[in-house]
């Protein structure tokens, strides 16, 4: 079966971002960028499905600026077969990205589409669900286990009270949670080989998709800073402060 994996280029998760002085957004100039951690898990799951003989081809797709080619090359080095870059602005809404991915899904006809559950920049947690709605496929969100069973896929999902397992008809959309797997590192020979793998670039116009959004960001501010606390010397002093000063116990 053909598996499509969507990956996003985001600010590296270790970077402490700063809000721009004019409140127009966060400052991403000269900041380290990486593949979104949940997308790494999605790529890893696809590669494991291929190693098990379930997946025959892995196509990795990213919607973003031309620099997102770096993240696509990373995915190719990890085991994806070919890549598609939908070259667009990097601040598209989730719905616009879902529409672009839908156009790619229509063209590629994968049996399984794997995305991360959320991107660590916008923290939206929407794209997978929206793609499922647009394509009419079933969705297995926040997956911690994925098992293909004939023409169905069983997905164990992380829900608020524990775990829930659902059975979905293929083709289906799966979004990854942290505990689905431990992503591997790309080896140097594979990074070299990945440079020769095919990478196709398309535009939203060529896919016939409008990327207009009903949302507009008016401003971005730094969160209110917490006032500096104090260090107490003993447990007794801590309890005294909590009882008499903070009055929380």
């Amino acid at each position: 079966m053909k598996v499509l994996v969507a990956v996003k280029r985001v600010v590296d998760y270790n970077v402490k971002v700063r809000v721009k002085a004019d409140n127009s957004g966060v400052d991403l100039a000269n900041v380290k960028m990486s593949m979104n951690p949940f997308c790494e898990i999605a790529v890893e799951e696809a590669v494991r499905l291929k190693e098990k003989g379930v997946a025959t081809e892995i196509v990795v797709v990213s919607v973003g600026p031309s620099t997102a080619q770096e993240q696509l090359r990373t995915a190719l080095a990890l085991g994806a077969d070919r890549a598609i870059l939908v070259e667009a602005a990097d601040d598209l809404s989730s719905l616009a990205v879902a529409k672009l991915l839908k156009a790619v899904v229509d063209k590629e006809q994968p049996q399984l589409v794997i995305l991360g559950k959320q991107a660590i920049d916008s923290d939206n947690n929407q794209t997978g669900q929206m793609l499922a709605a647009l394509s009419g496929y079933a969705q297995g969100t926040f997956a911690s286990k994925v098992e293909i069973a004939g023409d169905k896929v069983n997905v164990t999902r992380e829900v608020d009270g524990g775990l829930q397992t659902v059975s979905l008809a293929l083709p289906a959309i799966v979004t990854t949670d942290l505990r689905l797997n431990e992503p591997r590192y790309a080896s140097l020979p594979n990074i070299m080989k990945a440079k020769k793998k095919p990478l196709e670039t398309v535009t939203p116009e060529a896919l016939g998709v409008s990327t207009a959004s009903t949302n507009k960001t008016l401003k971005v501010e730094a969160p209110a800073a917490r006032s500096a606390g104090i260090k107490v010397k003993s447990v007794a002093e801590l309890v005294e402060k909590l009882k008499n000063e903070a009055k929380v116990i």
Binding site: L95, N125, Q126, Q129, A133, T141
Partner: peptide
Amino acid sequence: ATSNGKNILPRVAAQLDVDQISE
């Protein structure tokens, strides 16, 4: 914004062809 809300609502938004605002 519980696991159910996050699971269902983006699917609703896409069906209505509007962007969602999360959390």
